[in-house]
Write a protein that binds this DNA or RNA. Structure first.
Length: 826
RNA sequence: GCUCCAGUGGCGGAAUCGGUAGACGCGUUGGACUUAAAAUCCAAUUGGGUGAAUAGCUCAGUGCCAGUUCAAGUCUGGCCUGGAGCACCA
């Protein structure tokens, strides 16, 4: 065995052997229980970044730990490989997006292999390959048949920079999630998935996800945004037969309505506008259209609006009030119209103040009445000025008033969601084509399943400006109608890449199936994913879409479970000098350089060592250096003593105290490390325990000039245990040492160590003696000491005697095997 | 504004149940080895007071203020700060 550690040599060697021997292939059936460990698959952007390294290392260690514990572990990898960067690169360099993507996948695959990740590469999925997107299209058709797909003209988010529409979830602070440019509203005919049909169950089932963090669940719940209220209908005074319905969560305030607002885009707005007001209203609406989403949504902005000239009648008391249009009413939410109660809603209050609209108090806190002159009173209270409801608690009044509206035929109870349908069409080339054709006679027709995949065309001009490159193809667009055979036009929109990534985790269960996206028995066997690991940035987008897909496919009958990811670990970001690594800040660290200088084991060890997985991780060069030194130290521990170490895997018998202590330290380490991994994957403390055990072995060895037979047994036992415990993290180093010591097979196929509860603790304990809750003495005692004896020992302590002298001992609290607290008075 | 998460030495962080606060590492300082350096090894490292002392003793200390308890980093209430998400959603 070499005296020094040369990671570059041993890592390449073992990576090749593992691959050649298929060590990490996963059979579907093995007789063992299954475990599915999954990392969020990457976009093949070109090179791995440290966030990837962190993500994949965490999942890999979990997979290896579970394998050692006797599970048949599915641990696959693939590529989320459709998307705009490939197309942009194609435009810039004139290359084909497919070629660019393939090259990136090749390079990144090499990097993943260098990291020593234990993937079953035979299950690799690549979303941009026809053998995958065929099934994306097939699933689209199943959803279409089920009535979950529709096309409609709508106000959509348009990113000029990317030349495409975006889903609501892809608009961050009014800007494009990818390129950060300001998003505009456009009216376009687009494809939607009816995720709103599942709004309620997506919300309800969050409760089932006990293995998810509350932060992610709350984000999803907020995004779905369920609220309870009522729709109330108001007759328009000037126009016979016309009503304006409003959605409200505060039906208890109906007696305080003093005006009503409709969104500038409200469908009946032209009818509701009197000729005298037409010019002003038109001007206002034109202005609203021009505004960007950011300007319009800003809460800083002063609210504006114009009166329409018409009036509504309050069906509860016959009062009349004016109709206005204002852009603080949103056309997409509720009915697009709002009843305004300035006294009990801050937005209505601001608006009413500005335009001098009347106010009427209808809810009061009886103990602390407010006149609502300076601000709206929005807290609970008792109704006033509300006829027969006066004196009623406002929560009860919500129900009572809505019931009155239901009886009178001018209202109903209503549950409302913020979630909108998922806009999935994109005016781009590099995506799965939407499998639909337009026939002049038959209209929209889905492509028959046997004609799938609808292949992306090759004869495309990527440098075209102002429209999707796919529209430049001469072969793609013209086709025939599958129903009547007449000339038809192919849909040129492609699918949002999030559609492709909403089902990839299902495909891994049966990645090579060419008859189906996956066989039902296989998907039911492997899924749900036992542990999913990825970035928090997907808390809403990918994770919500995937949950929706799973539920929809369950309803279609393709699978039998209804949540895809049982446990979710959202890893923190990798920072450098306190801020997120990014090319623009110039604070990135190239994984290749780390592999080259220190080896993958050091990279793996370090990325897990300094912070718990869920927290942000601050990269430090000194920290990498420290981990490298530690691996060297472990290597030297073995190489310097190689002749004294044999393959000892069971706890040896010992007569010596110091040998007993080392054996105990090994058992303590096994217990601690196993628990730390099992309990929320606390790898940072796992690694500190590697160091503690290593230190203990060194210290033990340092005390002996030579080893007798018993010592050798004990030393070997400790060394082998250290290797096994470290094997999920330092995958190459431990494999190399395992073989140097004559180990058979791979160390990664060995079973995880078990600890003996009697040995997993120190041979003596430190009894802590407190007086009035403050530590005053520590006494080494035998752990078998009974409570009475502990009390005795504590009271005999000279320090305790000193402190209790002349005082009364009120009581003595004994915590077994730990502590005695003596309470004194006077 | 609403929701969630977090706050512990110079730094990253540790502390199953309320029971020795600061494990382990980084950094720093001192020392050993060396012609020298690197590597390695050893020691110290929360702050204040007292002390010749690197002995001992002592007080304070986990964002702030209260509370519960024999005992609080941990539990309860009220704040403060930072981060994330949502946001004119009626």
């Amino acid at each position: 065995m070499k005296e020094s550690y040369f990671p570059q040599e041993i890592e390449k060697k073992w990576q090749k052997i593992w691959e050649d021997e298929g060590v990490f292939k996963t059979p579907d059936e093995s007789g063992k229980p299954k475990y599915y460990a999954l990392s969020m698959f990457p976009y093949p952007s070109g090179k791995l970044h440290m966030g990837h390294v962190r993500n994949y290392t965490i999942t890999d260690v979990i997979a290896r730990f579970k394998r050692a514990q006797g599970y048949n572990v599915l641990h696959p990898m693939g590529w989320d490989s459709f998307g705009l960067p490939a197309e942009n690169a194609a435009m810039k360099h004139g290359a084909d997006p497919e070629h660019w993507t393939d090259e990136n996948i090749k390079y990144m695959t090499k990097q993943l292999k260098m990291l020593g990740l234990s993937y079953d590469w035979e299950r690799e999925v690549t979303t941009c390959k026809p053998d995958y997107y065929k099934w994306t299209q097939w699933l689209f058709l199943q959803l279409y048949k089920k009535g979950l797909v529709y096309k409609k003209e709508a106000a959509v988010n348009w990113c000029e920079q990317c030349g495409t529409v975006l889903a609501n979830e892809q608009v961050i602070d009014g800007k494009c999630w990818r390129c950060d440019s300001v998003v505009e509203k456009k009216y376009l005919s687009q494809w939607f998935l009816k995720i709103t049909d599942y709004a309620d169950v997506l919300l309800e089932d969050l409760d089932k996800l006990t293995g998810w963090g509350d932060n992610v669940k709350t984000m999803q719940a907020n995004w779905i945004g369920k609220s309870h209220g009522a729709v109330l209908k108001f007759k328009v005074k000037e126009i016979e037969g016309l009503e304006v319905p409003v959605y409200t969560t505060r039906p208890d305030t109906v007696y305080g309505i003093t005006y009503l607002v409709v969104a500038p885009e409200y469908k009946d707005i032209e009818k509701l506008t009197t000729p005298e007001n037409k010019e002003a209203v038109e001007k206002y609406r034109a202005n609203a259209r021009k505004m960007t989403e950011i300007e319009r949504l800003s809460t800083e902005r002063v609210k504006t609006g114009v009166p329409l000239g018409t009036h509504c009648i309050n069906p509860f008391n016959g009062e009349e009030f004016p109709l206005w249009t204002a852009d603080y009413a949103l056309v997409e939410y509720g009915t697009g119209a709002v009843m305004a109660v300035p006294t009990h809603d801050t937005r209505d209050f601001d608006f009413a103040k500005k335009y001098n609209l009347p106010m009427k108090v209808v809810i009061q806190d009886p103990k602390n009445p407010s006149d609502c002159k300076n601000e709206a009173y929005i807290d609970p209270g008792v109704l006033v000025n509300s006829e027969e409801f006066n004196g009623m608690n406002n929560e009860d009044a919500k129900k009572a008033i809505t019931e009155k509206a239901v009886k009178g035929g001018f209202g109903e109870f209503k549950t409302q969601y913020r979630l909108r349908d998922w806009l999935i069409s994109r005016q781009r080339y590099w995506g799965a084509p939407i499998p639909v054709v337009y026939c002049e006679k038959c209209g929209i027709q889905p492509v028959p399943e046997e004609q799938l995949p609808v292949m992306l065309p090759k004869d495309v001009d990527f440098k075209v400006v102002g429209k999707s490159p796919i529209t430049t193809s001469k072969t793609f667009i013209e086709t025939t109608c599958p129903v009547c055979g007449a000339k038809a036009r192919r849909e040129t929109d492609t699918m949002d890449t999030f559609v492709c990534s909403s089902w990839y985790y299902l495909r891994y269960s049966d990645a090579k199936n060419d008859k189906m996206p996956f066989a039902k028995d296989k998907v039911n066997h492997w899924l749900p994913v036992d542990q999913y690991v990825g970035g928090i940035e997907h808390a809403i987008l990918h994770l919500l879409y995937s949950r929706f897909f799973t539920k929809a496919l369950r309803d279609i009958g393709l699978l039998d479970f209804d949540e895809p990811f049982k446990n979710l670990l959202t890893q923190g970001m990798v920072l450098k000098d306190g801020s997120k690594m990014s090319k623009s800040k110039g604070n990135t660290v190239d994984p290749d350089e780390i592999f080259e200088n220190y080896g993958a084991d050091t990279a793996r060890l370090f990325i897990l060592s300094d912070s718990p997985p869920a927290r942000d991780f601050d990269w430090s060069d000194a920290g990498v250096e420290g981990c490298y030194k530690f691996l060297n130290r472990v290597w030297r521990l073995i190489s310097a003593n190689i002749d004294d170490i044999s393959l000892v895997e069971t706890t040896p018998h010992t007569a010596k105290k110091e040998n007993d202590d080392l054996i105990r330290n090994v058992h303590i380490a096994i217990k601690g490390i196993t628990n730390d991994i099992s309990n929320d994957f606390q790898f940072n403390t796992v690694i500190s325990k590697y160091r503690e055990l290593t230190n203990a072995i060194y210290e033990w060895r340092g005390k002996k000039s030579s080893l007798d037979d018993e010592d050798k047994q004990v030393f070997s036992f400790a060394a082998i245990a250290l290797m096994k415990l470290m094997s999920p993290v330092a995958v190459h180093l431990t494999e190399e040492i395992w073989h140097e010591l004559g180990g058979k097979g791979s160390i990664h196929e060995q079973t995880w160590l078990k600890w003996d509860e009697n040995l997993a603790k120190a041979s003596s304990i430190t009894l802590v003696v407190q007086v009035n809750g403050k530590v005053k003495d520590k006494i080494e005692v035998d752990e078998s000491l009974a409570e009475d004896e502990m009390k005795q020992v504590a009271l005999e302590s000279s320090k305790v005697k000193e402190l209790t002298d002349g005082k009364t001992i009120v009581k003595v609290i004994v915590v077994p095997k730990k502590l005695v607290n003596i309470v004194v008075k006077g």
